[in-house]
Amino acid sequence: MSALVAQIKDQQKDAMRAKDKARLGALRLILAEVKQKEVDTRTELNDDDVIAILTKMVKQRKDSVTQFEAAGRDDLASKEKDEIVTIEQFLPQPLSASEVDDIIDQAIAQSGAAGMQDMGKLMGLLKPQLQGRADMGAVSGKVRAKLNA
C-alpha cells in the first residue's frame, strides 16, 4: 500500500471519529477511485498513480462546479468545492509560475527540443515532475509557446 493511501485511510478513520460526514464522504470517494484503478489494472498503485487519480478528481469537480453554478445549483457547487478542498490536501504543494517556467526551460535544455515535433518528448519529461503540482493544460500551452518562439 502506498504511503499516500495509508494517509488517506488514517484521515478516513479520523473523520469517522469526528462524525464529519462531508469529509468522510470525500475520503471514501478517493479510496473508491483508487480501489477501482487497482482492480482495473490488477496492480498496487504507487504514490504517483494516486496523485494522478487525485488530480483527475479535482479537475472533474472543478468542471462540475462551473456547470452547477451556471445552472444556479449553488448547493451542489458548494458540496463539490468542499470535496476539492479535501482532495487537494493530499496533493503535493503547487508550484509557482516561475518554478514551472524554470522546470520547462531545464527540460528543453536537457532534451535539446528545437520545435513542435519535440512537444511529445518534452511533455513526457515534464509530466512526472509536474503531475499534481501544476495544471498540465497550462504547462502544455507554455511549452507550445516556448517551442514556437
Rank of each mutant, 00 (worst) to 15 (best):
F68M: 13
T66S: 10
Q110R: 10
R42A: 09
S96R: 12
L95K: 13
A77P: 07
A107Q: 09
R133F: 01
I53A: 02
A22M: 04
T55M: 01
A15Q: 01
K121C: 04
A77C: 11
K13C: 01
V139D: 01
V50P: 06
L95I: 05
S140M: 10
Q117N: 13
M136Y: 11
T43K: 15
I51R: 07
S78Y: 11
L45F: 04
K121H: 09
V65F: 02
I30Y: 11
S111H: 09
R17W: 13
K59E: 15
F68G: 02
L27W: 06
A26V: 03
G141Y: 01
E38Q: 11
D40Q: 14
A134N: 00
L130C: 02
Q67F: 12
Q12M: 15
A97E: 15
D10V: 12
T43V: 13
L95G: 03
S78I: 02
A6F: 00
D49I: 12
Q12P: 08
Q110S: 12
E44V: 14
A3Y: 04
R42N: 14
M123C: 06
Q36S: 14
K127C: 00
D14Q: 12
R42K: 15
E80D: 15
Q110V: 06
L76S: 08
S111G: 08
Q60A: 14
L4R: 13
P92R: 06
G137P: 00
E38Y: 05
G137I: 02
R23Q: 13
L95M: 05
L54G: 00
M116Q: 06
V65T: 02
G132D: 08
N46D: 14
V5R: 15
K59W: 10
K146L: 05
G141D: 07
P94K: 01
A97N: 08
V143G: 01
V139Y: 03
Q93C: 06
V100P: 09
G137D: 14
I30L: 14
Q117I: 05
S96H: 10
M123A: 08
G25A: 01
Q93H: 13
V34T: 04
T66G: 08
K79E: 05
K21H: 13
Q11P: 07
I103K: 15
P92D: 10
G115S: 12
M16D: 03
Q36I: 01
Q93N: 12
E83D: 14
D118W: 03
G124D: 03
L147I: 10
Q89D: 14
D47E: 05
R133T: 03
D40I: 03
R144D: 02
F68A: 11
D105V: 08
K81Y: 11
V100Y: 10
L31Y: 04
Q89M: 14
D135E: 08
R73M: 11
V65K: 12
R28Q: 07
K62P: 00
A70Y: 00
A15H: 06
V58W: 07
T41P: 03
I84S: 04
A52C: 02
K35V: 01
